[in-house]
Amino acid sequence: MGVKQNTIELKDNSAYRRLKDKLFLWAVIVVSLITISPIVLIIGKLAWKGFRQINFSFFTEVTPSTYDAMIAVSNNEVIPGGIVNGITGTLLIVGVASLMAIPIGILIGLFLFENGQKPYANLIRNLSDILQGVPSIVLGLIAYLWVVKGITHGYSAFAGSVALTIMMLPLIIRATEETMKMIPGSLKEAGMALGVPYYKVILRVLIPSGFSGLMTGILLSISRILGETAPLLLTALGNPMINWDATAPTSAVPLLIWDFYNDPNMVDLIWSSSLFLMGFVLTLNIISKRIIAKR
């Protein structure tokens, strides 16, 4: 070829590099196993200990009395009754909280998106971030003061909903703002150029285009509050019967778990209730992941 060959000798250290590669691979495998082991162990433990109690009456009957549970345990039978009062209570409390938090959160999120870096918007954004860091028990105390003492004059599902609403808000606000930022500005222009009033552009173009993002934020915030116990102890209190009245004390699945923990005869129900709650939260998480993937 006429061109002088490059004669620099490269030291052959491929064996060393291959060894390094293998070591690193194994390190990654071990570390990731350590990371996922808690979730596997938790689900395994819950399923192992809880499945015995999961039957039809678990979803249709209210919590058994201590006496019934004691008899069943001493005869080595399945504890009768179920947690339907907790399931309905959770639906009521979380439902009311969502009804309050979703519209307010989306509106604030839209406001922050529209007003970007204005001082007032920055203040709201920072306060919302701080709100996310407030311990849930403190929110429970506040809801106790405001709602239990001030509005319903007694423990109530509504008081629990207020505490949970405050927990949901920062998540929904963030999700809304981030989603709106990802929608190309050209869509807003397209709507405006058709002579559509701005509020209609938001409602009928921007929100539908960002629907999956908003939905994900909402589902994640719901799964975040499903397991909250501390604020409910101070607000919803609990109820051995099914209750659909938001102004009356109401049970919830995490409250029942706490109750079962405090009653030596009902220990078996802890596991099945936890399994149920875990399954519910996991399902919501999977749904929201699927929505993200579709986007």
Partner: peptide, 13 residues
């Protein structure tokens, strides 16, 4: 007065 933009922007939904 209608308008058409630089990048095609049909409503995706």
């Amino acid at each position: 007065i209608g308008m058409v933009f630089q990048r095609p922007n049909p409503f995706p939904t």
